Simulated scan of single mutants.
Amino acid sequence: MTADASSARCFVPYPFVPVASSGSGPLAGLRLAVKDIFDVAGYPTGCGNPHMLALSGVKTQSAAAVQALAQAGARFAGKVCTDELAFSMNGKNAHFGTPRNGGAPDRIPGGSSSGSASAVSNGLADIALGTDTGGSVRAPASHCGLIGLRPTHARVSLAGVMDLAPGFDTCGWFARDMDAFSRVGDVLLGADSAPLPETPRVLVAADVLALLEPRVQGVFSETLDRLAGAIGTPLPVKTASPSFDALYWAFRHIQGYEAWQTHGENIRRHDFQLGPGVAERFAWSATITPQQMQQHSAVRAAFREDFARLLGRDGVLLMPTVPDIAPLLTDSEQSLENYRNQAIRMLCLAGLSGFPQISLPLMRLDEAPFGFSVIAPAGSDRSLIRFAARLMHECA
């Protein structure tokens, strides 16, 4: 279904400037939306914040990922909204509004790549670039019923993209169908350094499932049954070492420390007027000490070793992408914050490890989309996409 662009509220209303495209290539004919933290020649980079927009100026060169997709034939459709400074996960921007969730219009689109997911889910773009630091591609993909990838950390260039927390920042993308999604991967990813075997060892994150409500566990179990022909009988495993709480706080502290190092000077110098949730997160981030950063970095390093041993070079881990379907637009800020904190406990597995995670639109609850995720070893992104395509075909 295609929505009207004005009702979808996903495009930033910049005066349209054409972006050069090769007109031919593997992405020819695909409309590309670009999150407004990527530089695009002829446009400012607003980053979902009026102060950043005022400081930006018009860019003369596009981000590396934008250039790559345009050279492969993608046709630029416009810049799309982002959560403020990419430091949120719900898609509600206090300054620029909330893009429409094309998969569940009464629910939040998820963020921070809110406009990217909205443009694709509303049929206004075929593919869209986003970024994922703490879940900003994976959560909107789940909420809006799309395919979305957080690639192996540093696999795709972030040249010309606003930093949030460089130790976690990644460039991902969205599509409605696996063919278009895979073609983008062919352009952006290059060859795998550690491809999966044709038949990977399949694991299920049993301790993640134990965090979730019975109704969520039920739909996930039903989906595993539907996928039996492609995955066989997965092995239940424990993923969170030493604990979900330890990983949650490690992620929060490292992300917050890096975010303040990135944006703190500007926030203070220009007295940024930040929206709800984002203001509180930056205020807390300003209090994190180098000693805390060092302590939590040690937790991260130990977890990465344990998680790498768990997956090896041949393992894939299955789990729901987020704790539940998207919260309602009418939910309170506190309710959204509680949901975000629960989601981070799941999303931080890929974030802390640096491993790729793909979210697939294979589940539904209460008539709303709900993402099914696969995490794979570092450097296996393209073979992960091929494995995901088999799962999509199995459920077709």
Rank of each mutant, 00 (worst) to 15 (best):
residue 230 A to Q: 15
residue 321 T to L: 00
residue 342 Q to T: 08
residue 184 V to L: 06
residue 324 D to A: 02
residue 206 A to D: 11
residue 75 R to F: 12
residue 361 P to F: 06
residue 195 P to L: 08
residue 352 L to A: 09
residue 268 R to D: 15
residue 209 L to G: 00
residue 381 D to H: 06
residue 142 S to D: 09
residue 222 E to R: 12
residue 381 D to Y: 05
residue 368 A to Y: 13
residue 347 L to A: 01
residue 71 Q to M: 15
residue 357 Q to F: 02
residue 192 D to G: 08
residue 43 Y to I: 05
residue 65 A to D: 03
residue 352 L to R: 00
residue 208 V to Q: 07
residue 183 R to D: 06
residue 290 P to A: 08
residue 209 L to Q: 05
residue 115 G to M: 13
residue 133 T to V: 03
residue 362 L to A: 05
residue 112 S to R: 07
residue 203 L to E: 00
residue 108 I to Y: 11
residue 147 I to N: 06
residue 93 N to T: 15
residue 164 L to V: 06
residue 109 P to W: 12
residue 189 L to I: 09
residue 100 R to H: 08
residue 385 I to S: 03
residue 191 A to Q: 13
residue 376 A to D: 04
residue 341 N to W: 13
residue 74 A to P: 08
residue 334 Q to E: 14
residue 300 R to W: 03
residue 101 N to Y: 07
residue 378 A to P: 14
residue 153 H to L: 11
residue 371 G to W: 10
residue 366 D to M: 03
residue 196 L to R: 03
residue 180 A to M: 05
residue 378 A to Y: 12
residue 354 G to K: 01
residue 196 L to A: 00
residue 279 A to M: 09
residue 42 G to Q: 10
residue 293 M to E: 13
residue 117 A to M: 11
residue 384 L to R: 05
residue 172 G to F: 07
residue 51 H to A: 10
residue 329 L to S: 09
residue 243 S to L: 07
residue 118 S to L: 10
residue 223 T to H: 13
residue 249 W to K: 11
residue 19 V to W: 15
residue 10 C to Y: 15
residue 229 G to S: 14
residue 317 L to T: 00
residue 394 E to R: 14
residue 362 L to V: 00
residue 20 A to H: 14
residue 141 A to W: 13
residue 376 A to E: 03
residue 325 I to L: 02
residue 303 F to Y: 10
residue 315 G to K: 04
residue 253 H to L: 13
residue 61 Q to A: 14
residue 37 I to N: 06
residue 276 P to G: 02
residue 393 H to L: 15
residue 70 A to K: 12
residue 382 R to Q: 09
residue 348 C to Y: 12
residue 171 C to Q: 10
